[in-house]
Design a protein around this nucleic acid. Structure first.
Length: 298
DNA sequence: CATTATGTTCTGGA
DNA sequence: TTCCAGAACATAAT
């Protein structure tokens, strides 16, 4: 998905729109995107209608975030957890047809009329505005559950501390790293148990900022390197939020001066030393780094 | 046609 | 048994 910064930016938009609104209708054309948790199981054929019955008439009270999950607090003690995964997108259109919010990944691009053919879920609100969830790859997930289930639900994903709201503890990082003797640090940073919210782009950014080669075994990092990582993670994530995050948004000038500094810049000169940025594959993901600033041996 | 894509989970082999 | 790389998920853009 969208990584933490983009989810946070979307959360801030939704927080100005959704709270106070009542869900007037809910439609879903792809039942597999929907889940119920801690609520009496319905047959697969009844899942969407059950979910609709539970959602319609409820007021949104809050829009929270944990890692890459958006958490909509609803009246009656229910919470809707939304995960956009790789390609999910939320667009809110006001009663007058004007766009009020947009966040998530690519298709459909701005200007493409909604609902798009990949718009699988639609919420109609009591003031006439509409929330569209579009996902060209159908990986996004909506889970409706009682508020008491949120803790266990997130625990099942092994979510670690949120990369933005809690300081990252170097001590704990070191412990987690020691349990992965051979895994490259880049792969370990993608594990949401380490820091919830880091994804492929910002894992690269954090390693560049700290001068650590992505293939270094996590367990082999020195204490000062782990401390540098712990400091860099919240710093980079909050900077990304401040800059408006994401290579998809942002104009050319922002891209030249702001984040991302290495990700997606193969062949471009490193901003610090001028060496061409290189790309390799780690854990199946494209990984960008500066071979000079991020040496393989410390 | 081949490659790539901001995420997560499962499988199978070492 | 633990750990890790790769495949799978489903589709579009380049």
């Amino acid at each position: 998905m969208p990584e933490l910064p983009e989810v946070e930016l979307l959360r801030r938009q939704l927080e100005r729109i959704l709270p106070g609104r009542v869900i007037a209708d809910f439609e879903c054309r792809k039942p597999k995107l929907c889940r119920l948790r801690g609520i009496e199981a319905a047959g697969p054929g009844e899942l969407v209608s059950r979910m609709r019955d539970l959602l319609v008439g409820r007021r949104v009270e809050s829009v929270d975030r944990r890692g890459k999950f958006l958490l909509w607090g609803l009246t009656g003690g229910l919470v809707l957890a939304v995960h956009l995964k790789l390609a999910g997108q939320i667009v809110v259109v006001g009663p007058d047809g004007r766009e009020l919010a947009r966040g998530g990944h690519w298709a459909p691009r701005p200007g493409v009329p909604l609902p798009h053919r990949a718009t699988h879920i639609t919420f109609r609100l009591d003031d006439g505005s509409v929330v569209y969830l579009t996902d060209i790859r159908q990986f996004a997930r909506l889970t409706l559950m009682p508020a008491g289930e949120v803790g266990p639900f997130l625990r099942e994903f092994g979510l670690g501390p949120d990369g933005l709201r809690e300081p990252v503890d170097a001590e704990r990082l070191e412990q987690v790293f020691r349990r992965r003797p051979k895994a490259p640090i880049k792969a370990v940073l993608l594990d949401q148990a380490v820091v919830a919210g880091l994804g492929n782009i910002y894992a690269d950014e954090v390693l560049f900022a700290t001068g650590i080669h992505p293939l270094r075994p996590a367990a082999g990092l020195t204490r000062p390197e782990v401390e540098a990582l712990a400091a860099a993670i919240p710093e980079i994530l909050s900077r990304a939020v401040a800059e408006g995050a994401g290579p998809v948004v942002g104009d050319r000038a922002a891209r030249d001066n702001g984040l991302p500094e290495v990700h997606g810049r193969e062949g471009e000169p490193c901003r610090r030393c001028g060496t061409p940025i290189r790309r390799l594959r780690v854990g199946g993901r494209s990984t960008y780094f500066c071979p000079t600033c991020q040496p393989l041996s410390p």
